[in-house]
């Protein structure tokens, strides 16, 4: 589990460190992913006209140009087709968490997604299950778990500390309002 932040004592001689967060900038439409993730669900837009699943989030269907796109639950099954381990990042937050393992997953529903890989995911090619989790900035990120087990993260958090520090889970965090209802 992520460490909760210790409250510094008054007149603490330790200089206040600037709290770094992962990049939070998203387009308005992409926040739909976060709205669902805050409620514990992985949802993508599905075209009401032709049924095409969209990712990354879009304003219109890439297949038929319909603008009637509904956020719908995804089971997240897919194949890890390629992967990399990052040793360099352009972002200050991520630099403190390198190396980071990333994957490219072809979802069974169609789209290709760039995701974080749980440490237990075997090398590509491999079956994975993708889920949406909230990161430290309160934004949804996609994470691939081995086989069919999205519970792995809860069961084995310490086994994967870089990924864990990069976010994943609203525990002890302030989650920005997303339009969804967060249950206790």
């Amino acid at each position: 589990m992520t460490r909760s932040l210790e409250e510094p004592g008054q007149n603490s001689p330790v200089p206040q460190a600037r709290v770094l967060l992962p990049p939070s900038r998203r387009s308005h439409i992409a926040l739909g992913l976060t709205t669902a993730a805050a409620q514990g669900r992985f949802e993508l837009q599905v075209c009401s006209s032709c049924g095409a699943v969209q990712y990354p989030p879009r304003e219109a269907c890439h297949r038929c140009l319909s603008v009637l796109l509904d956020w719908q639950f995804q089971d997240g099954g897919g194949e890890l087709i390629s992967e990399t381990t990052l040793f360099h990042s352009h972002d200050e937050f991520f630099r403190e968490h390198l190396p980071l393992r990333l994957g490219m997953v072809r979802l069974d529903s169609g789209p290709t997604a760039i995701v974080y890989l749980h440490g237990k995911v075997p090398p590509a090619p491999a079956r994975v299950k993708v889920d949406a989790r909230l990161d430290k900035a309160g934004r949804a990120v996609l994470v691939a778990f081995p086989g069919d087990d999205t519970k792995m993260a809860d069961a084995d958090p310490a086994g994967d500390s870089p990924l864990w520090e990069a976010g994943c889970g609203p525990h002890s965090r302030t989650v920005p309002p997303t339009g969804g209802t967060v249950g206790k």
Partner: peptide
Amino acid sequence: QDAVYPYGAGG
């Protein structure tokens, strides 16, 4: 911005 940079910002 939405689907690549938030994943490690590897560029």
